[in-house]
């Protein structure tokens, strides 16, 4: 494959399109967030997400090719998120991508959504080199992954119940904040008294790298019931500190266990300021480089899919037939190094 790669992301509630050139880097990217569409329902409605993707994709594609100054004929390949995610939403991106690629005579490849997140820091200057540890924190995922090399992933730990972003949103709902509640909760926490409540740090008192966040959420609910709405800011602060502490403790353990010299943090929750500061401090203590993608590439986006596509298509991978396939579940450990 030669030439820039088109990347399409539609696994949940963001429609992302980007073009990445193996030689020149990211040429253009565009995103449509459906947050407002789902806000009234207090969560992502899969059917509404799918309906929006199919309306947004081609206009975004036009915009991205325009910004990159490219015509359709100048593309070298097409990559799309094939999973994990919402099947109906994934199918929209996959259908358009597969048809577009075949129609244009281009190689096409389905990309693992979490691998794309893992590789997103490579869109930035001074990218991390494997081996490193990656902490993926989003509305759908909480994962610690050892990246021995691109395509060689070992999941060190993951959440046993709620994803971290889910815990943020549910706790925000308890506190009467809107959806999505994560950023609102973080803002409220700034006004909270850090010493008033102390929440548990689940699963930090025993070995292992798995997470559990439903207990903190329940603790928040009970505290709110006992202390009343006046305590909302203090509860937000205690919740956020407990969550950040938990993530830092597990990240430290993962770094020690693997002796990795770099930590990559990705996923929507990595935009959280307190988490960023705490993980930076951890990096200084352990003398480990900490990499965050810019906020736009922390959340779901097309750029990371185009990048992952450029790496794998560039190694000669491509879908072997014309079947349009997506996967709701897809363990990271099933992936192989590019071209193998």
């Amino acid at each position: 494959m030669q030439g820039p790669v088109l990347g399409i992301e539609s696994s949940c509630d963001e429609t992302g399109v980007a073009v990445y050139d193996p030689a020149a880097g990211l040429l253009a990217h565009a995103l449509h967030s459906q947050v407002d569409l789902h806000a009234v329902y207090g969560g992502v409605v899969p059917e509404l997400a799918s309906r929006d993707h199919v309306r947004r994709l081609l206009p975004l594609l036009d915009r991205v090719l325009g910004e990159a100054g490219l015509s359709r004929d100048q593309l070298g390949g097409v990559a799309y998120t094939a999973g994990p995610g919402l099947v109906g939403a994934l199918l929209v991106g996959a259908s358009v991508a597969r048809a577009l690629a075949w129609g244009a005579g281009l190689p096409c490849l389905g990309i693992h959504h979490m691998e794309a997140h893992l590789l997103a820091p490579m869109l930035e200057p001074d990218p991390p080199r494997p081996p490193f540890v990656a902490l993926l924190v989003s509305g759908g995922h909480t994962l610690l992954v050892h990246v021995a090399d691109i395509g060689r992933y070992t999941v060190l730990g993951e959440t046993l119940d709620d994803a971290i972003g889910e815990a943020f949103d549910k706790t925000a709902k308890i506190l009467g904040l809107g959806y999505p509640g994560g950023p609102a909760l973080a803002a409220l926490a700034e006004q909270g008294d850090p010493g008033r409540f102390r929440f548990p740090r689940p699963m930090t008192d025993r070995p292992g790298l798995d997470f559990s966040f439903s207990g903190i959420k329940t603790f928040a609910l009970n505290t709110y019931r006992a202390a009343g709405p006046g305590a909302a800011a203090d509860i937000a602060r205690a919740f956020e500190e407990a969550v950040v502490d938990t993530l830092v403790i597990k990240s430290r353990r993962a770094l020690r266990q693997t002796a990795a010299r770099a930590l990559v943090v990705a996923g929507g929750v990595s935009a959280n300021r307190r988490l960023r500061a705490a993980l930076r401090a951890l990096g200084e203590t352990l003398e480990v480089a900490v990499h965050f993608p810019r906020p736009a590439f922390c959340t779901d986006n097309g750029a990371m899919v185009a990048l992952a596509g450029a790496i794998r298509l560039g190694a000669g991978e491509a879908e072997p037939d014309l079947r349009i396939r997506v996967r709701a579940r897809w363990p990271l450990s099933e992936l192989r190094p590019p071209g193998r």
Binding site: S50, A99, L100
Partner: peptide, 20 residues
């Protein structure tokens, strides 16, 4: 079928876009 409709329209969009 919602999903079926989107597969058809998505494929049509992609093919038509590729070939103008």
């Amino acid at each position: 079928s919602f999903t079926g409709v989107r597969i058809g329209v998505g494929v049509a969009q992609g093919l038509a876009y590729a070939a103008g």
